[in-house]
């Protein structure tokens, strides 16, 4: 190889999203075939085109495989306790409304142990973006049943098959008041990237559920092949239905997957409502914090 060509190549970053990641923390912990990394790639692509000042973007994760995303992002990032990313994000956003606060966590973390926080943040229309990776089980602890495990699937704590009804997460989010609700899979990288960009631009509680394979602890135990087989399944069994009624998008074991943007509406966010309310009630007597004044009373 000619020397100058070699030099040019050496100047090309190994991965175009490198500057968004904490490369000194690589390699990551995720298994081969895991879908989380793909979603992170989409998230970074969305960030790149979002126009956001990255110094003003903060990421909050809970615990679990997806909970590790915060630690790999080159952003202000907080790896909190199990299920509590949303209330931490709530405090962070209320303290400094200038920040774009993103919660990135797993299905068990956000909807089982953190379920109460999830529904209340949606109800309040708290100004945060929640990205939920649904691999249908607890990955990090060894593949236990989750509120998202389909009926009929096998998990380590349902060795004879799961018979518990599952959450339909887009329906849950919408019924609690989320203003942006979408579902994609790790296969839908372009749609997902666009959707994340929209969610980041949305004011209020925006929510994206992303189905992602866990070949190690879900696919293998359910004899569904490896990560690639799951991606092929997503490709062959997903139907894009933007605007679908979220009541109709429940997931079934190896059933068809309805993906798309289901909800995109306007309603006053928590911060708008709070500021408007106090402004109306107290006029000039209302003293918002300095950060609040910048964003809402400029």
């Amino acid at each position: 190889m000619p020397e100058e060509l070699y030099e040019i190549e050496a100047n090309i970053p190994a991965n175009p999203i490198e500057e968004y990641l904490r490369m000194d923390r690589m390699p990551h912990i995720w298994c081969p075939g895991c879908g989380i990394g793909t979603t992170v790639n989409c998230f970074v692509r969305a960030l790149q085109t979002s126009g956001l000042d990255l110094d003003k973007v903060a990421m909050v994760s809970g615990i679990g495989c997806t909970g590790r995303v915060a630690g790999y992002m080159n952003l202000d990032s907080f790896h909190t306790t199990h299920g509590r990313a949303i209330p931490f994000a709530t405090g962070l956003k209320l303290a400094n409304p200038e920040l774009k606060v993103v919660v990135y966590s797993g299905d068990g973390d956000l909807t089982a142990i953190g379920g109460n926080h999830f529904i209340h943040a949606a109800r309040r229309n708290m100004d945060i973006t929640v990205i939920l990776i649904n691999n249908m089980i607890y990955g990090m602890t060894g593949g236990q049943v989750a509120p998202t495990t389909p009926v009929g699937a096998t998990a380590s704590t349902t060795p004879h098959g799961n018979f518990e009804e599952t959450f339909n997460l887009p329906f849950l989010a919408e019924s609690c008041g989320a203003v942006y609700v979408a579902r994609w899979t790790a296969h839908h990288v372009r749609h997902l990237t666009k959707s994340i960009k929209e969610a980041l631009a949305k004011k209020g509680f925006s929510f994206i559920e992303i189905l992602a394979p866990c070949p190690t602890l879900y696919s293998r135990r359910n004899k569904l092949g490896d990560g690639l087989d799951q991606m092929e399944f997503y490709r062959d069994h997903s139907q894009i239905k933007n605007g679908a009624d979220t009541k109709t998008v429940a997931l079934e074991f190896q059933g068809d997957i309805v993906v798309g943007k289901f909800v995109d509406k306007e309603r006053p966010t928590y911060l708008q409502a709070m500021n408007q309310h106090y402004q109306k009630k107290f006029g000039d007597r209302y003293v918002p914090s300095e950060e609040m004044r910048k964003v809402f009373h400029a």
Partner: peptide
């Protein structure tokens, strides 16, 4: 210039304050 929020439980309250501190 303060923000008070009544959270959904004490677990949420005790971590929301920590988010605010890092803010």
């Amino acid at each position: 210039g303060g923000v008070f929020i009544q959270m959904e439980d004490e677990i949420a309250s005790s971590i929301a304050i920590q988010g605010a501190v890092w803010g």
